[in-house]
Amino acid sequence: MSNNLKVLRDGIIFDNPILIQVVGMCATLATSTSIINGVGMGLSTTAVLVGSNVVISLLRKFIPDTVRIPCFIVVIASFVTIVQLLLQAYLPSLNDALGLYIPLIVVNCIILARAEGFASKNGPVASFFDGLGNGLGFTIVLGVMGAIREFLGSGTFLSAKVLPDVFPKTLLLIMAPGAFFTLGILMALFKHVIAKRKTAE
């Protein structure tokens, strides 16, 4: 069990999909304009990732090596469609906010990378935790980015107004370039902290 926890922790921190592995950037940059959008996207991706990881791990003996990538893609796309239908049915406002980026979860490199790199070689339980860890790592970074951009860009926190109007809002941050800047600075910060910890040890 402790092994599973280690897998979970690695996914969240030391192998963080965005800050360390640098995968799944499109969704990260596009949907982190507010906390709700970022976390919504993160959790949708986590659901797909956990589902596809477990199913692919269960099917790993059945899936022939030569056509494994198409098989993975079909499984992943099925989960994405299910998530999309559920969002349309029960959370339409989130579905509208994320729009095009829901079907694009299919090509989020995180999912295929975990399927190929972990789930096709490990058992379903470990794959479940791997999916959960990576998904949560992804969600946390999206949430943090969403919080920064929402706070500085629109002066709100979870859509509640926190900055009085006299403070100038940095509109640039909720526009496209802000996504690049925020992620660049966040990544540098993360690298700096990790490097510092390593020298301390």
Binding site: A176, G178, L183, G184, I185, M187
Partner: peptide, 21 residues
């Protein structure tokens, strides 16, 4: 040092994105 690699690339991309705005 902390900005080497991807971080500085992202900042560069951000500046390009500003100009495309």
């Amino acid at each position: 040092k902390a900005f080497e690699g991807f971080p500085i690339a992202l900042i560069g991309a951000g500046l390009m994105s500003v100009s495309f705005l």
